Amino acid sequence: MRKKNGFTLIEVLAVVVIAGILFSIGAAMMQTTIMISRHDSFLATAHSLEEAARQYSYHHRIGKEETERVTYSELIGEGLIERVKDPYTGDLFEDDNTTFISFKNNEPLLICLKGYTHESCGDSNGEGLSFSLLSRERIVRME
């Protein structure tokens, strides 16, 4: 009798095919997880800006009129936040970024957060999105 050593070509091929399928499923899940974390980071940035805007409003409210809108560059200039990193590109937002927060009764109400490739500004009118409506689904890719 002959002693059988090793695997047949069919067995090796089956293992390679199964490994390829598992790898492709894992890669797709990894991409989804990375995109979700980038969206969550973008939302966390929006909430950090909300808190900085609230501090800005409290500081400027004393003896002055109500604050209507504050920009990213004003928050930077006041030292209330440091430059923010865009989670999609890894680059820091420029000081002249057009992100803004709108107020009602000196309370932050709307945000228009603009990154390099994504934004969350509500409808096409660009007036801003209510902080209560911020979600992953409201982040859109800019063209």
Score class of each variant (00 low, 15 high):
55 Q>F: 01
3 K>H: 10
70 V>R: 02
47 H>I: 15
51 E>Q: 05
21 I>E: 04
35 M>S: 07
70 V>S: 01
40 D>I: 03
27 A>E: 15
68 E>T: 11
67 T>H: 01
35 M>R: 06
34 I>E: 09
21 I>S: 10
65 E>M: 09
53 A>V: 02
34 I>F: 05
21 I>C: 10
25 I>D: 02
52 A>F: 00
33 T>D: 10
20 G>C: 09
5 N>L: 09
28 A>V: 04
38 R>M: 07
42 F>I: 12
17 V>N: 07
27 A>M: 13
3 K>A: 12
30 M>Q: 11
69 R>K: 14
57 S>H: 06
26 G>K: 02
40 D>R: 11
65 E>Y: 09
25 I>P: 00
52 A>M: 01
4 K>E: 14
8 T>I: 11
41 S>Y: 03
22 L>G: 13
56 Y>A: 02
35 M>W: 02
35 M>N: 09
66 E>T: 12
24 S>I: 05
30 M>A: 13
28 A>L: 12
30 M>P: 00
50 E>K: 10
18 I>T: 15
52 A>E: 02
21 I>H: 04
11 E>R: 09
52 A>T: 01
63 G>P: 05
66 E>V: 06
43 L>D: 05
50 E>M: 12
16 V>S: 11
64 K>N: 15
43 L>R: 04
7 F>S: 14
21 I>L: 15
23 F>R: 00
6 G>I: 05
35 M>F: 06
13 L>M: 15
22 L>P: 02
68 E>C: 03
32 T>V: 10
58 Y>Q: 13
24 S>V: 05
14 A>C: 15
26 G>C: 08
54 R>D: 01
43 L>M: 14
72 Y>L: 05
50 E>Q: 13
33 T>L: 05
7 F>D: 08
13 L>F: 13
57 S>E: 07
49 L>T: 02
33 T>C: 02
43 L>C: 10
38 R>D: 03
32 T>Y: 08
